[in-house]
């Protein structure tokens, strides 16, 4: 495989990785909670797309419009009813809490959907485009563009909207935001809802490309970890940078060492970054 193809693959995959990580990064940044349900939310989103397509022939691009509000409500309620009760507790407690919730959701998915791998196959297939020797399947291309669009939407929301500014304010300085009259608990719930919505949408896009199974959730979660740490917590651009770097490292790594070592490499990179540059490539304090 030549360099141009590796690079193009990395860019395509990198945008998807960024999309996987962005909701996770938002929740971590704003709520200071590592949301271990994130991976299962993504898988649930993928099942939603799979179900809608197979039962009602709703194409995945429209499924995004269904997934976003549905997951937002799910996340919002989860935060309001459960997580807000332990949000001030030490790291250990919030982390274990989201782990417990993840066990429940993941087990429920295995129970209802079984653990087998399924694949959403578009009929007719969209084929692929090739420029010179570089080949990209069209469904992958569409997923990438949608992922970028979602990321851009979040950026605009945080930059331009009133609620977005409130989220950034809470992230920067919780206490000051309270003094300015921001209802922190409700901002937490909105941020968590947004994180869930982004996960659900990411799941819909993943369904276009990867096989679907509850067993894949920890893989997605792992990617979200790595992207956040590489890119730096707290920025949309950081997630993009992290996603691209991860995809590039995996691409180059699997070319030289074989695909089996790509994951190992990415986690070693994660640990190295944590130790040497915990703020990541583009880390800073505000979430924009």
């Amino acid at each position: 495989m030549h360099a141009a193809q590796i690079l193009v693959n990395a860019v395509v995959l990198g945008c998807l990785y960024a999309c996987i990580a962005i909701g996770f990064s938002l929740v971590w940044g704003v709520l200071n909670v590592i949301n271990l349900i994130h991976g299962s939310f993504i898988v649930l989103g993928a099942y939603l797309a799979f179900g809608l397509y197979n039962a009602l022939h709703i194409s995945p691009w429209y499924s995004i419009a269904v997934a976003a509000p549905l997951f937002f409500v799910l996340g919002y309620l989860l935060q309001r009813l459960l997580l807000n009760r332990v949000i001030t507790a030490p790291v250990l407690v919030t982390l274990t809490m989201t782990f417990g919730l993840d066990l429940i959701l993941n087990n429920a998915m295995i129970y209802f959907f079984k653990a087998d791998y399924r694949k959403l196959t578009l009929t007719p297939s969209l084929g692929s485009v090739s420029i010179f020797d570089v080949v990209v399947p069209v469904d992958r291309l569409i997923a990438t563009v949608s992922a970028l669009a979602l990321t851009g939407l979040l950026y605009l929301l945080l930059r331009r909207s009133r609620v977005g500014r409130a989220i950034v304010a809470v992230r920067l300085d919780r206490d000051a935001a309270v003094l300015m009259g921001v209802d922190v608990k409700s901002i937490y719930a909105i941020a968590f809802g947004l994180g869930a919505a982004l996960a659900g949408c990411a799941g819909v896009l993943m369904a276009l490309i990867f096989p679907i199974s509850p067993l894949t959730s920890s893989g997605y979660l792992g990617k979200a970890f790595v992207v956040c740490v590489l890119g730096g917590l707290g920025s949309v651009s950081g997630a993009l940078a992290g996603g691209l770097l991860l995809a590039l490292v995996e691409g180059i790594g699997s070319t030289f060492f074989g695909p089996a070592h790509a994951t190992t490499l990415s986690f070693i990179l994660l640990i190295v970054f944590l130790i040497l540059r915990p703020q990541g490539l583009l880390g800073r304090k505000g979430f924009e």
């Binding site: 332990v86 417990g100 993840d102 066990l103 429940i104 993941n106 087990n107």
Partner: peptide, 17 residues
């Protein structure tokens, strides 16, 4: 047996709450 991890999750959540 089929939902034991889910029940474990539930125990965790209740314990923490």
């Amino acid at each position: 047996i089929q939902i034991h991890t889910g029940v474990l999750g539930l125990i965790i959540v209740l314990l923490l709450l």
